[in-house]
Design a protein around this nucleic acid. Structure first.
Lengths: 214, 214, 214, 214
DNA sequence: AATGAATGAGTCTTCATTCAT
DNA sequence: CATGAATGAAGACTCATTCAT
């Protein structure tokens, strides 16, 4: 009976654990939609609650408050993104193909979650000069990690003698490439989006490959 | 006498006009500093007032409210910037040298007013998906004008057969170039800023010129 | 069979009754500790639950709510105290010794349960002017009964000609004596408690003796 | 003109200063009435605001929040009380008459402001065992100062050989006397208040006299 | 027109209570 | 009947805006 009780308890805990995770995810997704639509300060906790289909108070069982909800969202999405690009980095062996694979993934990701990426920038990356960054320090670290991954990719390409001998250091190339991608994303957002973003992104690769001006 | 009265009035009005402009400028500059430090919603009207050395109420004699103050700031800085690059565009005749001159100016501008540029992006460009864009529509138009100027520069370079025959349309090149500049700016902000930003920007030009990969 | 069923039921009820009482007591003791530490409004139901080792909801099977829990606690402790002093009253026959015995008991009680006595005062006696007395009316009645017992003790001493012929009525003497004890308790609480409270309380008796008793 | 301007400014500041003080007092008095009626946690800031005839927000221009409002009230009333008894202490020279004068004043004060005294006790003195005392530390210090003043009064009476040679130290006597006064106050509050409290208080003096004074 | 305190609508947050499991 | 998470009413607090001086 003791065993049965324990099993029962464990089962209940498992259910609870699952339910907890499910609630968290539901709230985070609701928060994502609202934050994307209204921005941080334009978002009311009660709005997120309504969107998630829970009571306002419930959100406080899962997140300390508005700030932490936002930070959690940004960090979670950031980690998910970083995990994915790290996976691609490890998967590819040829230095150049690796960079191209990364670019293609980033492009797809941007195409699907433009909104989230936008608030990601809003929250931290663009206001890293601000005294207090709502997104927390982690969000800046994450962007840095993202750029650093490209830096490493360029460095390994350089070691493999696959780069033209320019004055560009790997870090500069990473900054340039990620910047290009953002610029294209911005242009794509502003456009009617009739052409796929992926097509645009090939251009970035091409520019890097060839240079453009005669 | 009527004439004299009118003259007097005009004189008084001139003084008033000047005083008005002076106040406006003082408040705008204060607002710029605070908005850069704290972001839009983190900025209190009373903070701006203190920074400007005026009473809170005074600001409402010059701007309708917080939103309009912000929008005015963004638009004013935007127009100033657009005026300057338009001037450079007209001044330069060689298509390639024109692009390079534009890049050099943008770089200098970014180096001096990174903060303002950051909130410029935050306010409008990145959140153009938001239902309500605090910065107003003009801010998006301005960014578009900025990119468009580069687009025109590339188009005229293309017409002059000064571009490599790639699949890149002038608009794409503009997006790529401005994106690269932003990426470098971001990297430069995050760095210790020991090397000048201008040096970094030459890299952008070089990449465009040469392409990078062997 | 009916009889057996009834017997069975009674047995089950007895067990249930016991279990109920046990739970009640556990919760009351937990509540006592927390209320003493944090005061009424500083105490959360969930804190009491954790201290008692039960779920929050469980408490609502034993008490109607926070108010009733508090009132029950105060009243229960009050009745226990009143029972004990009533017992001492009946046990002692000599009017003066009776008063002294009562004082000694009150002193011991105060020394052990200062906290509870403090919230007892807070809850009811001191705020009887408030529109809503959390402790309920009974708490005030109880304090009145406590003072009344002393009043009766003094009255019987007066009848036995054991009091100095002052203008003090028994009720006044009761108020004065109980007040003195509280004053000493307060001083003792504030002190380092190196001397026992009992020793302090002898002073109260002495003052009454010298000043009042023949 | 500079002088006139300065004078003007000073005048305005004076008015403002006065107005500030007036507002503070109005709010404090409103708060006193409501806190006395409803207790600390039963009092809503909006209630106090309505009672004071100001907007809710206004109160936050004068007090940091509910806690600070309460603390300010308690401390202010405490200081006022301490100032008055200190004055009486200095005014009287005969040690015994001094004690009597103090008692008479305390009695009058209690009679007039029972409510405030009640919340004073509630707030701090009775719950000094609580982890966090809403009233702040000062409120406990104040009560200590009050008792200490009596202690000094008794000590100077002892030095003047005006006390019976009992085992009571001045501190004990102070505790006993102040306790007696509280006890009588409590009894008086509970009574129909047909007899004046002052009359009751004479009894305290009498008990001390007969019991303690030579 | 400048001032800066008053205003109160708008939010976040807490926590007693309920209820599905 | 125990559980503990969901609930949402209640209330503290902020700050853009107004307005009397």
């Amino acid at each position: 009976m003791a065993a049965r009780q324990k099993a029962k308890k464990t089962a209940r805990e498992a259910v609870r654990e699952q339910s907890r995770a499910a609630y968290q995810e539901i709230i985070l997704e609701a928060a994502e939609r609202i934050f994307v639509r209204r921005g941080f300060s334009g978002t009311r906790m009660s709005d997120v609650a309504r969107e998630a289909g829970v009571a306002t108070g419930t959100m406080y069982n899962y997140f300390e408050g508005k700030d932490e909800l936002f930070r959690s969202l940004m960090q979670l999405r950031g980690e998910q993104f970083l995990d994915q690009i790290a996976h691609i980095y490890r998967r590819e062996n040829d230095p150049i193909e690796r960079i191209e694979a990364l670019v293609r993934f980033v492009v797809e990701y941007l195409e699907e979650r433009v909104g989230t990426c936008a608030i990601f920038f809003e929250a931290g990356v663009m206001s890293e000069m601000s005294i207090d960054c709502i997104g927390g320090d982690r969000i800046i670290e994450q962007y840095t990690e993202y750029v650093d991954l490209f830096e490493r990719a360029f460095r390994s390409a350089a070691r493999a003698k696959r780069l033209k001998p320019t004055g560009c250091k790997p870090g500069d190339l990473a900054a340039i490439l990620t910047g290009m991608l953002n610029g294209l994303a911005r242009a794509w957002i502003a456009s009617d989006r009739s052409t796929s973003f992926a097509a645009k992104a090939d251009l970035a690769i091409q520019v890097l490959r060839e240079g453009v001006v005669l």
